[in-house]
């Protein structure tokens, strides 16, 4: 597995060297955009509309638009300098119950593995969290962005969920026409509860597949293996053998062969004719 990040978890005085690995992968089917006429992958060109000029990557800087059309330029190393102070460390600041965190906060998942000499403190943290049933809330900087993160026990190891900061989670109140408290009849509520009861099952992730992706993949496979739908539209030539029989028969001088059975009979006849000819030549 590809290492995403190297650093350490620190809590209190303990420092655990770790590596992070992506725990999930996006299986979206990657398509490239091609020029329809010649099937060449198209090229995206960064241009400056003001200078009417294509730009190289070293000519491009980042700016923050603090007011319409007004930018402050932020150099890459300026950002890196800020991140440097805290980076390389997952700093556990609190321990909380997992149930305290609403799933809306969770962003991406990473597996945590021990780095060199990290195995023992890694195990220690895992065991301690397991017995307490708590998860650690930490701060981490990945790719120059600071994240809130939850460190928790997962199976026989540790993992980390990066989390949105509270101000990144929108308010439900902003959804229009959200109903206020209203009176509902006990009967209706009971029916709804019964329906839920009936549909209740154990969560089995293997039951769910991305059917659309599978359908697209099947289409792609069929095209690769030559069952191109364009070709499928074309019908096989069916009666060409009969057509050839008919054509060959129609090429024979009239009255010398029966057109219905051109093959065997003509073959014999021709043999006779060639032999006859040979005799004629010999004479």
């Amino acid at each position: 597995m590809h290492t995403m990040w190297k650093g350490s978890i620190s809590f209190g005085l303990v420092n655990i060297p770790i590596k992070l690995y992506s725990a999930t992968e996006n299986k979206d089917i990657k398509m490239r955009y091609l020029h329809e006429k010649c099937h060449t992958p198209i090229k995206y060109e960064k241009t400056c509309p003001n200078c009417e000029k294509a730009l190289e990557s070293d000519e491009i800087v980042r700016g923050y638009e603090y007011e319409d059309g007004k930018f402050v330029i932020i150099e890459r190393d300026e950002i890196e300098a800020l991140a440097q102070e805290k980076s390389k460390s997952v700093e556990i600041v609190d321990f909380v119950e997992l149930d305290d965190i609403d799933p809306v906060f969770f962003n991406r998942s990473y597996f945590i593995g021990p780095n060199d000499n990290g195995s023992k403190p890694y195990m220690l943290l895992k065991k301690a969290m397991e017995t307490s049933g708590r998860i650690g809330i930490a701060k981490i900087t990945i790719r120059s962005k600071e994240h809130l993160a939850a460190v928790r026990v997962y199976k026989n190891g540790l993992m980390m969920e990066t989390m949105y900061f509270p101000d990144e989670v929108r308010e439900l109140d902003h959804v229009p026409d959200l109903p206020e408290e209203m009176d509902l009849s006990d009967k209706e509520l009971k029916m709804a509860q019964q329906l839920i009861e009936q549909l209740t099952t154990e969560f089995d992730p293997s039951q769910y597949q991305d059917e659309r992706r599978e359908a697209i993949m099947a289409l792609i496979q069929s095209k690769i293996s030559g069952d191109d739908i364009k070709v499928v539209k074309e019908k096989p030539k069916k009666n060409v053998v009969d057509l050839m029989d008919a054509l060959q028969a129609s090429l024979e001088p009239t009255g010398t062969t029966e057109p219905s059975k051109p093959k065997k009979q003509e073959q014999k006849k021709k043999k006779v004719s060639v032999k006859k000819k040979k005799e004629k030549e010999a004479n």
């Binding site: 053998v241 060959q248 024979e252 004719s273 060639v274 032999k275 040979k278």
Partner: peptide, 20 residues
């Protein structure tokens, strides 16, 4: 003659006819 005597035909393999 060799062709006519030695080569059988099938639906896709045929001997070209000779015409006088």
């Amino acid at each position: 003659e060799i062709l006519e005597e030695g080569l059988n035909q099938n639906k896709s393999i045929r001997i070209v006819h000779s015409h006088e």
